[in-house]
């Protein structure tokens, strides 16, 4: 189990030793790996305070002058800076490419007991509508590190990390090819689960249950739900009669369900969507309870498979 954000920031820290143009901003959000950056590279780090709008504007200005900028903050509150992301950053980026990487923590309901102000089921649907904004959802800390290490060219990216430590799915020596936007975790016979983020470990449990029944199911880790190779993924999904989207987002409006629905329209593939009801969640309780309330249980999914 490891925090995705720490693995990501550890890679950034390593890169800062030989890349003097890396600059890190935090909207007053901490992480052990960030402490190392603050300590060893104080001139290239700013705590901008709880001021997400200004943080994005300052990041834009720095990137306009050639800096490779990382902005760290809480997912729910980057929605507050949606205007600055769109109007200050992305408009400029379309004409003159910038290098800005927004690292958010607290994906979905990972701040499970913090209440609806800290839940964030809307960032991916909103940001996926912004042209030029690349969205990445690492499914574990190993993938988060690989993303930080590999995605260093110009681009405006949103890395959406779970707020909790997440089980390691990928080994340290896993060779990530991020170019297709997805990784095939398993190939199956009739049904395939498409998921992303911390939900992948949940899907791996389902895979084991089905395997114990003698059934192989497909499993796709769609770590970039907007930038993936659509032709390639469709050719894979066409091998199945049933596809299940599993996401910590709204069942119908979640970025996975929308993207996969769009992808398979016109095919004979039957789509089942697992996600949350479109309402705010006030009841405190562990994540598993919220999953159960939304019908996201291994039994329910196995029944559909």
């Amino acid at each position: 189990m490891k925090y995705m954000r720490d693995s990501f920031l550890e890679s950034v820290y390593q890169q800062m030793s030989y890349n003097g143009k890396i600059f890190v901003l935090s909207a007053d959000v901490g992480a052990p790996a960030l402490d190392k950056i603050r300590k060893d590279y104080p001139s290239r780090f700013i705590n901008t305070g709880i001021a997400e709008q200004n943080t994005i504007n300052v990041a834009t200005g720095l990137a306009m002058e050639g800096y490779q900028v990382y902005v760290y903050g809480i997912a729910a509150f980057f929605l507050r800076a949606a205007d600055q992301i769109r109007n200050s950053l992305l408009l400029y980026h379309q004409y003159s490419p910038l290098n800005i990487n927004i690292l958010s923590t607290g994906k979905g309901i990972s701040y499970e007991t913090a209440g609806p102000t800290h839940h964030c089921l809307e960032d991916l649907p909103v940001f996926s509508a912004f042209p030029g904004f690349e969205i990445y959802v690492p499914s574990d800390a190993t993938m988060a590190r690989a993303m930080a290490a590999q995605l260093i060219q110009n681009g405006v990216r949103y890395f959406c990390c779970d707020g909790k430590k997440v089980a390691l799915i990928y080994n340290d020596d896993f060779c990530f090819d991020l170019s297709d936007g997805y990784i095939t975790r398993n190939s199956g016979e009739k049904s395939c689960i498409v998921t992303m983020g911390g939900m992948l470990s949940f899907a791996e449990e389902i895979l084991k249950v089905m395997r114990s029944k003698g059934i192989e199911i497909g499993l796709i880790d769609l770590f970039t739900p907007t930038e993936f190779d659509k032709d390639k993924l469709l050719s894979i999904l066409n091998n199945y009669s049933k596809v299940i989207t599993l996401e910590e987002g709204y069942r119908e409006e979640g970025v996975l369900s929308v993207q996969i629905q769009k992808l398979i329209t016109g095919t004979c593939i039957k789509l089942h969507k697992f996600g949350f009801d479109r309402k705010y969640i006030f009841e405190p309780g562990p994540r598993e309870m919220h999953y159960k309330n939304a019908g996201i249980t291994i039994n329910n999914i196995v029944n559909v498979l």
Binding site: I46, Q53, N54, I56, N57, V58, A59, T60, G61, L62, A63, M64, E65, G66, Y67, D83, Q84, R86, N87, S88, L91, Y92
Partner: peptide, 18 residues
């Protein structure tokens, strides 16, 4: 790119910092 008010000074602050 300006038009959404309130952003020019923050961008300018980023430029000045750089």
């Amino acid at each position: 790119d300006t038009g959404s008010l309130g952003n020019g000074l923050g961008i300018g602050a980023g430029l000045a910092f750089a």
